[in-house]
């Protein structure tokens, strides 16, 4: 039914990948006692967060890259369609970096880890960033900047 209405969707791969993402976050929670929130771990890896050097964050971040590489080696090149101009990446990157730190999380920390914990903050944050993402995509198309 989904294939009929949304021919471009890959629901099964999405769901299986989602289970793996959840498993990764679960291993980090139960094994290391920590939240797999990439924006926070990224900041800690770069020393841009409070506290001493964080070895766990560094290992997680490196392994995150390794996991993607592993799939590309086994399963073939990963399909990635990027914006038509580097400015989309630069502007989006700065805003994502600033916003995720200000809001204490991103899709992984608030979306995956926080919502499953039924954190009201995370549920609100997730609906907020999804809502603003939807409005942004629609606005971009309206002003001719869609891609």
């Amino acid at each position: 039914m989904i294939a009929e209405y949304f021919p471009q969707a890959i629901p099964l791969r999405g769901f299986i990948g989602g289970l793996l993402i959840g498993l990764g976050a679960a291993v980090f929670l139960i094994g290391s006692g920590r939240i797999a929130g990439i924006s926070g771990l990224f900041a800690r890896t770069l020393g841009l967060a409070t506290g001493p050097f964080d070895r766990g964050a560094l290992w997680f971040t490196l392994a995150l890259i390794g996991g993607a590489v592993l799939v590309s080696l086994i399963d073939g090149p990963v399909v990635q369609r990027f914006p038509p101009h580097w400015l989309y990446l630069a502007v989006g990157g700065v805003i994502v970096g600033f916003g995720t730190r200000l809001g204490s999380g991103c899709t992984s920390g608030h979306g995956v880890c926080g919502m499953s914990r039924l954190s009201k903050r995370s549920i609100l944050a997730t609906f907020t960033f999804m809502g603003f993402g939807i409005v942004t995509v629609a606005t971009m198309r309206a002003v001719g900047l869609g891609w």
Binding site: I21, G22, L23, G24, A25, L64, G66, G67
Partner: peptide, 23 residues
Amino acid sequence: YPILAGLLFGAGLAISGMLDPAR
């Protein structure tokens, strides 16, 4: 644990199509 967690997470992102910004 962090290495296993990161590997699973990264593999999941790649398999699920979430590394594709257009998707």
